[in-house]
Design a protein around this nucleic acid. Sequence first.
DNA 1: TTAGTTAATTCGCATTCCGTTAAAAATACC
DNA 2: GGTATTTTTAACGGAATGCGAATTAACTAA
Lengths: 392, 392
Amino acid sequence: MRAINRFNVLDTIRRAGSIARIEISDRTQLSTTTVSAITASLLDDGLILARTEGDLREAAARGRPRVMLELNPDAARVVGAKIAANRMVFVVTDFRGEVLSTLTLALRVDRQPIGVIADLIEDGVRRCVVDANLALDEIDSVCLGLPGVIEHRTGHVRTSPIFRETGIDFAKEMSERLGVTTIVESDAHAITLAHHWFGKARDLDDVVLVSLEQTLGLGVLHGGQLFRGAGGLSHNLGDLVLGMGPQGTVRLASLAGESAILGDQPSGRFAEAIRLGRGMAHAKTLIDAEDNALISAAIRAGEACGMALANIVTLFAPPRVILVGSSLALGQPFLDSLREAYSLAIPPSIKGVTELVFDQSTDETWAQGAAVVALRELYESPWGTTGPAPAL
Amino acid sequence: MRAINRFNVLDTIRRAGSIARIEISDRTQLSTTTVSAITASLLDDGLILARTEGDLREAAARGRPRVMLELNPDAARVVGAKIAANRMVFVVTDFRGEVLSTLTLALRVDRQPIGVIADLIEDGVRRCVVDANLALDEIDSVCLGLPGVIEHRTGHVRTSPIFRETGIDFAKEMSERLGVTTIVESDAHAITLAHHWFGKARDLDDVVLVSLEQTLGLGVLHGGQLFRGAGGLSHNLGDLVLGMGPQGTVRLASLAGESAILGDQPSGRFAEAIRLGRGMAHAKTLIDAEDNALISAAIRAGEACGMALANIVTLFAPPRVILVGSSLALGQPFLDSLREAYSLAIPPSIKGVTELVFDQSTDETWAQGAAVVALRELYESPWGTTGPAPAL
DNA sequence: TTAGTTAATTCGCATTCCGTTAAAAATACC
DNA sequence: GGTATTTTTAACGGAATGCGAATTAACTAA
């Protein structure tokens, strides 16, 4: 009971940024007494701070001024990372999820042996922590956002474009290397939570996010919780089947995946750009220069995405869908054909239910999302509940 | 707190059918003291009954025999209904969900004005209640399972093949007519809960159900709760887009919907069978007689369903998928092609996660499922909690 | 200075749950 | 019939929680 209310109060403070006790009691429907008790214990545990200034009511406010409460940034530190095929981005954040330091490594880890990848990640985490003027033992938790099908609950990576192997217990591997609790999560889930905390889903507890990167991912937020499959499985949109062609199934990835759009670029400047993770940006300049092959690839991809998107909306009927990922950088041809295919494919019965939002988040935001995954688990953990009774 | 524990105890009793207090305490992790208190209050409220016989331990059990507790069938009565285009099935059930009376009306309500349909439903409910030797004021709740896109929370029918109009507040309409709380729910959601309580999902809290009837529906059970879209929206699988043809989008319904399989049968015995709701059964006999047109239609439908199914599994990754509905009656050609398309389309990364189960439920089961929807809401309502404190 | 206003805390009360212990109930074994 | 065994109920104390009312705190307005 207390644990639940504690979490609710903490989360209310987080959402508000800065809020008085009365206001908390208003929003959580708890009595001011209870709120006072809980906030006292949170203050005691150092999870929140009180600030006397900052009462934002009408200037001519009478009565005892409110004491604003906010998260204590120093209550915890976590590392979040976005691991992609050609780059890794690490962030260290404080308890609020604010970024303290960032590190981007432009590396092609694609299909390297696990050991190598783990080495690189370990290195990145350590360096990013040092950059934040911290030591590793001051970090409470690490979360790695990976593309592919991730089983968050068990820490297994079922399949991922960056691994040759399948079914790796990567959470355990990295936990042991770092000596810090490390969890894994789908990169799409990470960016979904990033939007929930800081981005375009701040006002919603139900939202669907589609990530169009090298891998096509999906994040479904339902009642403020990530919707995960059995075992905490993440989804892989790229595996969606769009049709049966003569040579087997046609999957979304084969039309709208990065390599499908950019094609095989054996060498040259384009290939170089792709290797550096600027494939889409380069493609955009080529499209602006009217490269017809690319334009038609972008249109095909947009149509496929629009169709898949309509199907997802048909199934989940969220009030908002957020589209993110490097493919958005393709610009007009891609976006227009996506929108058109979507509006053609969306069934009339749920027209108007869902709003489409596009967002070009930076890699840092993705990593921040991974940090949020880690923070959420910290929030929910019993912490040092002042009293003896731990959570059920 | 009490309300939660009460509900848990009640649900534990329901699941077990018949269970001793000790066993409840075991399963719910509540102390025997608490269980005793709660069961006493439940007995007091007449929601459960004690039975001395029925201790199923080893015959040579010593000590005080267990007192088995079970739901009091007479604690409540609800009506559940399945409304389809060519028939209506009503059931009256007791508090346990056991059927007390059934009524099937073979009527073509398809596209009639609302008033007419409402008249027929009202009539059916009243007759079925009378058949159970009850009066309408002894009924606690009514739930109508309808095809189409239903907004359970608001009681609105967004679109349904049986209505010409869209966006009808049908729950309100029927509540007023009957003078009994009436709720609406997607028929697919109803059958999903029926399977959860009585059928092939009794052992699971996460399952996906696909209903292949005139309309293609979907029910997703997640953590024992129905997954509903925004506003309690139900899903309509038939609206899934399988591809973009020359004349616009190709939806699943156009390949695997009833009319797509059976084709336009202007007149004759087949047309008559369809009108009577035996279209699929008749089709089966024709298929057995090697009607090539029908066989290929069934195969096309099976392929489309298998593909769509694979996509759903890709998105939800449930441990089990249950397929129900009249189309299953088509037999081999349909099922084989479905299975084949499914196994072709299912991505290797989640192979083995999901088990396919086919089930030919009777219409009565669907109606029973609607009754379950009503019962679940009764279970969760505060009831006459003995103590003063109501639910939060 | 005083009265008024709003915020936060303190205090007392009721509820709920758990654990322990004990007793009562209902049967089997000897 | 007595004893052992097991389930259920009952009683008491302790602890945690949440709420309402009263109280204190801090400030504004006159």
